[in-house]
Nucleic acid binder design. Sequence first.
RNA 1: CGGAGCGUGGCGCAGUUUGGUAGCGCACCUGCUUUGGGAGCAGGGGGUCGAAGGUUCAAAUCCUUUCGCUCCGACCA
Length: 574
Amino acid sequence: MKGGFFMKMSKMYIPTLKETPADAEIVSHQLMLRAGLMRKLTSGIYTYLPLGYNVIRKFEQIVREEMNRAGAQELLMPALQPAALWKESKRFDDYGPELMKLKDRHNRDFCLGPTHEEVVTDLVRDEIRSYKDLPLNLYQIQTKYRDEIRPRFGVLRGREFIMKDAYSFDRDQAGLDQSYQKMYDAYCKIYDRCGLKYRTILADSGPIGGDNSHEFMVLAEVGEDTIVYCDSCDYAANLDLAESVLDLKEETAGDAELSAVSTPAAKTIDQVAEFLELEIKQIVKSVLYETQRGEIVLALIRGDYEVNEVKLANLLGVVNLELAGDQVYEELNTVKGFTGPVNIGEVKIIADHSVSKIVDGVIGANEADQHFIHFNFSRDLDLEETFDIRKVKEGEECVHCGGKLKFAEGIEVGQIFKLGTKYSEVFNATYLDEDGKSQMMEMGCYGIGITRTIAAAIEQNYDEYGIKWPLALAPYQVHLLQLGESEEVIAKTEDLYKQLNNEGIEVLLDDRNERAGVKFNDADLIGCPIRITIGERSLSAGKLEVKYRQTGKEFTISTGDETAKIKELLADLS
RNA sequence: CGGAGCGUGGCGCAGUUUGGUAGCGCACCUGCUUUGGGAGCAGGGGGUCGAAGGUUCAAAUCCUUUCGCUCCGACCA
């Protein structure tokens, strides 16, 4: 790289590890430590070493280019922020214990910013007065803080991490829609350029607020969310929100009356089905929940499905939902494992669509060791409608195209929100329109986790020997190995090193006095896309050896025009 | 915050049950040999055994307190 990066390994600080550090659980964490990209300072907080910082800069540069191209402007806001601002938006308390709080010597409250809506809105409200100044999109790449309850997975869930965050300000919703779409497109370009396999999903907007949001999820073997995606269309959703086609059969109504049967010790769906020799599908699962407001809700779902608590909570308009405690069962005069919707006390009943057609089902009788059989949903219950509170299962049908739904773990690497006027109202961020009337700005906010995207890239690109960087993120494009100390080898290596440098190709030169095996293994571990080996063996035949890290393909090229050839190879890779 | 586990040289670990001069592998330094997939031999440096207090003639080891780290869960996104 032109511009003064150290590139000779004999002089560089690249502490690779032969052994896997004991406390690193997932591959990206292990490899980031082993390849000498970073070191842990304390739980959830890392130092980025020269090689790791190179990768960070590579990704940041891609982000900058696409953000600038989309019309956003870079600035840098403080990480240390006065609590007063956060009290103005009520988030000093509402954000919860994840907000890293501290005091200065005068005992004034401060916090370390996990995000910058407050700061940026405060800035803009003072400076932007006219519709002529809109739209505006400001972004920064900065260190953020979140006092995680449990940091884990290396850089995937840290307490200090690097984020790109952008904030858009528009005159109206139509403008916001445009700004949002621009960011959506820019994000796609960014992740495409990194060669990442990702999906966008509709998401809950969480504590940041607003009513419209997409998450960009990198699909991997490990992740924090289960992503449901369709194998034949673009549909993808968080498992919490995913929908699928419900396989409902019209059943012919039996006219048998609801009647109690003894089902001793049959508490689970499986036990009841086995005891009565019925299909699981005929049994109605009844689950009691208690909301944070103390409301008791009985959820009904077909025996072969699970209740999706997020869907249920959203339906009820609550944030928190818990399985009811023993006390609730006592109050309702029912028994755990034998709960049912008929003859239960005063509770709200929410039924899933899956039970709506049941005509000869089984429900709990609210008495120990008793169930009712011949349960007919429409006859025996007086419910106006049924809802979707069902957890999707892998292999079910896509609601959009009929394709098959698959599950993957996902790492959230970006999220975009339409905030609307939530913050402009709080901070009174207004402008004057053409008629001289004061109007609220419509805001959007857009985040990319820089450090976690790098971890996600590794999760998608590694083998048993180490990292296989996509060209766009590689700390160096070419890893040049000098094997042996003969004059010819040294001279050729120096020569090629200089030529590549002059061409602006980023080359890492392994000129260390190490054995070949050490160099090969470190090269595999560090994972630069192209490895060039210069050794007497092939140099005497006028050849250099090339190996692609990604595919493992090996071949030789002739000396003489090797620089031009290497440029071609790189062009082919990108 | 609940459950589990771990803190011994830079890294990975043994030693703790049963108290008795702190050890192994890797890494590091010196020399010789070696040199295309993590070399061999010889010599060498480096550790308040996480911290504090206690018991004991004697503590890495037993007791108390405390700090840190990791995993599972709750939580968060």
